[in-house]
């Protein structure tokens, strides 16, 4: 070693340093995202679910005149995005447990770079999952009837919703102490949230007392937005509630996550 007289981190412009940190942190996260286990979660799992749901229900619903493929695709996209957000929280909990976050906090890195890298990672995973599902759903009759711009919008809403969910789960991942408790906190709400929405059954077929819940559910909002952006029979005005939900969750849970992160070491 040479005599360690000089300090590290030569004064680079702040913006450039931030971009460097995001890039390095995201590259590390990507390595994990593209591991075999992670790809099973983002690619294989959604396809398995698609196969199961389609094979089970499409015949029955076709008899009632419902084309199941196009209507269930947005729901299964939302489900895949939920799994991404859950895996993201587990990754954060691992880094917290290993002490890696403590080390990063003692280094000249801004914590917003950490957040940005994580959001970038879940965004890329969301794009992969959504594209894979859309391609396979093509076989089941799913089409982008609203044109290429709406298809891009479909992808953007999916990415935005993943970021919102990841912000929610990140707060849990940084707060809940044990991995088992965290897994329970993440996996328990996922199914009720998905089913008690317009994802599988229209709102008016729910019991009366449950209908308000179905109507205000963020999952309903996002499923409806994705349907509006792929199906010509609904208006694109139904995209707004999803955008409001996502923006609200990102702001609120971005704040709670930042607070939780500062407490990680205390």
């Amino acid at each position: 070693m040479t005599a360690p007289a000089a300090s590290a981190a030569p004064a680079a412009p702040a913006g450039q340093a931030f971009l460097n940190d995001v890039q390095v942190l995201a590259e590390r996260d990507f390595k994990r995202s593209f591991s075999k286990v992670a790809l099973f979660g983002t690619v294989v799992q959604p396809l398995v679910f698609f196969g199961i749901f389609y094979a089970t229900f499409s015949g029955m619903l076709a008899d009632k005149g419902i084309d199941y493929g196009p209507s269930v695709t947005p729901t299964l996209v939302v489900q895949a995005l939920m799994f991404i957000a859950i895996a993201s929280a587990m990754a954060l909990a691992t880094d917290r447990g290993s002490g890696l976050f403590n080390r990063l906090r003692t280094m000249p890195i801004s914590s917003s770079a950490l957040g940005a890298a994580r959001l970038l990672t879940v965004a890329v995973e969301a794009v992969i999952s959504t594209v894979v599902i859309a391609l396979v759903a093509h076989l089941a009759g799913f089409r982008f009837h609203e044109g290429p711009l709406a298809a891009i919008g479909f992808l953007l809403v999916a990415v935005l919703f993943t970021m919102a969910l990841a912000a929610v789960t990140a707060t849990l991942g940084l707060t809940v102490r044990s991995q088992e408790a965290l897994a329970a906190c993440l996996y328990l709400p996922y199914l009720p949230l998905l089913v008690v929405s317009t994802g599988f059954v229209p709102a008016n077929l729910f019991p009366g007392w449950l209908q308000p819940v179905v109507n205000v559910s963020p999952v309903s909002a996002v499923v409806e937005a994705l349907r509006a952006l792929s199906d010509s029979s609904t208006g694109t005005g139904r995209v707004w509630p999803a955008l409001v939900w996502c923006a609200g969750l990102i702001l609120l849970c971005g704040w709670t996550t930042a607070r939780a992160f500062r407490k990680v070491t205390k």
């Binding site: 300090s7 590290a8 981190a9 590390r28 390595k31 994990r32 591991s35 880094d95 290993s98 002490g99 890696l100 403590n102 080390r103 003692t106 280094m107 000249p108």
Partner: peptide, 18 residues
């Protein structure tokens, strides 16, 4: 301070997958 101090904690804080 962060730019001047290297820290090695009680637990080896490295990424186990890397």
């Amino acid at each position: 301070v962060r730019a001047s101090v290297a820290v090695t904690g009680q637990f080896a804080a490295v990424d186990e997958t890397l």
